[in-house]
């Protein structure tokens, strides 16, 4: 080989590229610790072969032959080779399914384990810290009379009927009014009903009225989905802090849910610290809400 040929070859772009590539890969191989190399090997350990063998035995109804076992091992090796190749080529990037899967696995890993179940003292402390969440509902014992919407031609007639009933009720006790008002399937007498339940059955306005209504006299009219009512409150049992035994299961569920949410938030914060986030909003995107968080 003469010098001019050598010079020409050296100036050939393709050869330059090849040499540069060889240098980089060779250098990488030489510089990598041997452990990294070893970990690239696909090792099928004996325990895995045994579990394959057990699975095969169940499917076949007898212990697999050496040939069957070898084929099963080979199938797993092939799959692993493809997976390694795909990861090396970056095929997982931009794949929505793989991304979602990775995100889910990371969420699980980052949140960490559930932790020990809450102790009794912790539950009691949680109840003490959140008494409003576990209140016993107020209860009311009352009578009601209805001026039924569907028994009167319109709003004016309904009002007029209510006014007439109000006049008759003034000064009457609970029992002497029992024949008054329009018939309906609603009970006349409610005993110790939770105020929130009254709200569901007769509407929020009646529940509000019963919260403040004077005891032992007729009060109204007050509207419900069924018309106008007069109520006679006989007894009001204030709501109050619940006894621990009453709400223990609820307290426990709330505490566990809160801990789970806290773990999730912490793990997300840790990741944010590692990977700063910057969002470039395009022109023409909807304006942020006034109360936007973050």
């Amino acid at each position: 080989m003469n010098r001019s040929l050598l010079r020409r070859l050296v100036s050939e772009p393709l050869l330059q590229l090849l040499v540069a590539g060889a240098a980089i890969f060779g250098g990488y191989a030489l510089l990598s610790p041997s452990g990294a190399r070893a970990s690239r090997a696909i090792v099928i350990d004996a325990e895995f072969v045994r579990s394959l063998s057990r699975g095969l035995a169940r499917r076949l109804g007898h212990a697999p032959t050496r040939a069957q076992l070898e084929r099963a091992v080979e199938r797993h090796v092939e799959e692993e080779l493809y997976v390694r190749g795909a990861v090396a080529l970056g095929l997982a990037r931009g794949d929505a399914i793989v991304r979602r899967r990775l995100a889910q696995k990371m969420r699980f890993v980052a949140e960490g384990p559930e932790g020990p179940p809450p102790r009794e003292a912790e539950l009691r402390a949680y109840l003490a810290a959140h008494p409003r969440r576990f209140r016993r509902p107020p209860r009311v014992t009352f009578r009601q009379l209805l001026v039924a919407r569907d028994k009167h031609a319109g709003a004016v007639e309904l009002r007029a009927a209510a006014t007439r009933l109000a006049a008759r009720l003034s000064g009457l006790g609970a029992s002497s009014a029992s024949g008054l008002g329009d018939a309906s399937l609603l009970p006349r007498h409610y005993r110790r009903r939770a105020l929130d339940r009254v709200g569901r059955e007769l509407g929020a306005a009646i529940a509000r009225r019963l919260r403040d209504a004077p005891l032992e006299r007729w009060s109204g009219p007050v509207a419900s989905p069924y018309g106008l009512h007069f109520v006679y409150l006989e007894r009001r049992e204030p709501g109050g802090a619940a006894a621990f035994a009453e709400v223990r299961a609820e307290v426990r569920a709330a505490l566990l849910a809160e801990r789970r949410a806290a773990r999730r938030a912490r793990s997300l914060e840790r990741l944010r610290a590692r990977f700063p986030v910057k969002v470039h909003w395009p022109h023409g995107a909807p304006a942020p809400a006034v109360t936007a968080s973050r």
Binding site: E79, E80, V83, R84, A86, I97, V98, R101, L102, Q104, K105, F108, P113, E114, P117, R248, A249, R252, L256
Partner: peptide, 25 residues
């Protein structure tokens, strides 16, 4: 890898019944 490569399912590589609710009161 099997878990990672193919799964469509959200929590298929964990055990949600075991992981998400403990023994109880």
């Amino acid at each position: 890898y099997l878990c990672l490569a193919g799964a469509l399912l959200a929590a298929s590589c964990q055990s949600p019944p075991a992981a998400l609710h403990d023994g109880g009161a």
